Computed example of a mutant assay.
Amino acid sequence: MATLYKVTFLNAGKIYELYARKIASGNLWGFTEVSELVFDLHEGLVVDPTEERLRDEFGSTRVLHLPMQSIVRIEEVERKGQSAIRDATTGEKVVTPFPLPAKPR
């Protein structure tokens, strides 16, 4: 079974939680390399908007170079959980809700 890591880091006032297969000390001093990012592939009607947003933002990323001071924690996990974007001050999930139709007046 391949090793899987949960990477939690700060970015633009939000806390990101991503999953990756490889973590290494970067060739750039002060940076950690995160590569082989893992995303859920939803084939049905139910789509997680947070997972979609993360896939849109990082889907084509080969290696993510994170400054050491932005990393909150790196955990080696047995299986992938739900990726998340949280507000750094409150810890609440930041999810773009599915747009609802406007109420008629």
Score class of each variant (00 low, 15 high):
19 Y>F: 15
35 S>W: 11
55 R>Q: 06
21 R>T: 05
22 K>I: 11
20 A>T: 02
49 P>I: 00
29 W>M: 10
49 P>E: 01
41 L>N: 06
24 A>F: 10
53 R>V: 09
29 W>P: 11
30 G>Y: 07
49 P>A: 02
49 P>N: 01
40 D>M: 12
51 E>F: 03
33 E>R: 15
16 Y>N: 03
19 Y>M: 05
45 L>E: 14
25 S>Q: 15
17 E>L: 10
42 H>T: 11
42 H>E: 15
50 T>D: 02
55 R>F: 06
30 G>K: 06
53 R>H: 13
31 F>M: 14
47 V>Y: 04
39 F>Y: 05
32 T>W: 13
26 G>C: 09
23 I>F: 04
33 E>G: 13
34 V>Q: 00
44 G>L: 11
43 E>W: 13
45 L>D: 12
16 Y>I: 11
43 E>Y: 12
17 E>A: 09
39 F>G: 00
51 E>P: 02
26 G>K: 06
51 E>A: 08
50 T>Q: 05
45 L>P: 01
25 S>P: 13
38 V>G: 01
20 A>L: 08
24 A>V: 06
51 E>Q: 05
27 N>H: 09
29 W>T: 12
25 S>Y: 13
19 Y>I: 04
23 I>Y: 02
18 L>N: 00
32 T>K: 15
19 Y>D: 00
20 A>Y: 10
